[in-house]
């Protein structure tokens, strides 16, 4: 982006924050934090909410928000789980199993694309504010998940499928590899395609975008579909890592995804934000998360902290904006 240089200071600040968090936790918890096992576990956790954060970022860049990311991931995960358990009659583990797994993944991704498409249509064509559209679809997707599973969890997937969530290649967890591939893909999509460029421009000023020949409806639908797709990919990693899925799993990810976005410098009003910031936000959050786990903080206490950090980031952003030089107002 031509505009990225002005954002350098922001990214630098984030980098300092990330390193400081890392150093502080390393100093206080050296034996438990700085271990290969801990890093492996961190690397297998990052992809789940990292992908959801990227999904959230896409919606935010267009000037909207996607409150249905976790519900989308859940529904896709449940569809995949149903395929896996229903077709998994061959306990032998031959080609049939691979076939089942591929079918499950495909089904999950298609479902996630449909979810995103629905959000996109509501926002782009019907003109529903993104908050309410995705709040509604969040209820809808969760509702479908509950009806399909009758509220129970689905457990026990084929061994080969679990490899996706828990296997490693040269000590690197497979989820991390998937994540890296996804990040590279989204970097290219956002920074080097006409679609990505249009997303930024539309998010910055939808009216000017329309006047410049951008088809806003198309871009919005695509953006929400890509957002859905990333939620779908996250769901595959999610269910294969914990070998189960139940409706409502991972609700905390919604807050974390939004938190990572605002921490990473994505402007909730649209048009501003970059992936380098987002990724540093993701790592910072995971380092903290890992520290809290080592300190065995309760999930409730973590909830408090995530909420506080979210608010703190917004307050800091408020002061940063205030301090940036006042520009010539419309005279």
């Amino acid at each position: 982006m031509l505009g990225k240089y002005s954002k350098h200071s922001n990214i630098f600040t984030l980098f300092i924050i990330m390193i400081s968090v890392f150093v502080i936790i390393s100093i206080f918890l050296p034996n438990k934090f700085l271990t290969v096992r801990n890093f492996q576990s961190m690397f297998s956790q990052i992809p789940e909410f990292g992908l959801l954060a990227i999904a959230m970022m896409l919606a935010m860049l267009t000037g909207g928000i996607d409150l249905s990311v976790v519900a989308t991931a859940n529904l896709s995960g449940i569809v995949a789980a149903l395929v896996l358990t229903k077709y998994n009659i061959f306990q032998t583990g031959g080609y049939e199993e691979i076939y089942t797994i591929l079918l499950a993944i495909t089904a999950a991704l298609i479902v996630s694309l449909i979810c995103g498409f629905l959000n996109g249509v509501l926002v782009a064509y019907v003109g529903v504010p993104a908050i309410l559209a995705t709040l509604g679809t969040m209820g809808l997707f969760t509702g479908i998940s509950i009806i399909v599973t009758k509220g129970y969890g689905i457990v026990g997937f084929p061994g080969k499928f679990l490899y996706i969530g828990s296997g490693t290649v040269f000590l690197i967890p497979i989820p991390m590899i998937i994540f890296i591939i996804c990040v590279l893909a989204i970097v290219i999509i956002i920074n080097r395609t006409t679609f990505g460029f249009s997303v930024f421009m539309l998010g910055s000023n939808p009216i000017a975008a329309r006047f410049s020949g951008i088809r806003n409806e198309n871009i919005l639908i695509k953006a929400y579909m890509v957002s859905g797709l990333f939620a779908g990919i996250a769901s595959i990693i999610m269910i294969s890592r914990v070998n189960s899925i139940r409706p409502g799993y991972g609700e905390v990810y919604l807050l974390q995804a939004i938190l990572v976005c605002v921490l990473g410098g994505v402007d909730p009003s649209g048009g501003e934000g970059n992936l380098y910031g987002l990724i540093m936000g993701i790592f910072t959050l995971q380092i903290l998360q890992s520290g809290f786990n080592i300190l065995s903080f309760s999930p409730f206490f973590k909830k408090v902290i995530w909420g506080l950090i979210l608010i703190l980031v917004m307050v800091i952003n408020f002061y940063r904006e205030k301090e940036s030089p006042k520009l010539l107002k419309k005279v």
Binding site: M201, S204, A208, S212
Partner: peptide, 22 residues
């Protein structure tokens, strides 16, 4: 100009090339 013509927060470069992305 401010609402329909310009992406006021965006760089000059991006404002110019938005019509000729292809």
């Amino acid at each position: 100009r401010l609402n329909q013509g310009l992406f006021i927060k965006k760089s000059i470069g991006n404002n110019i090339v938005v019509t000729v992305l292809k």
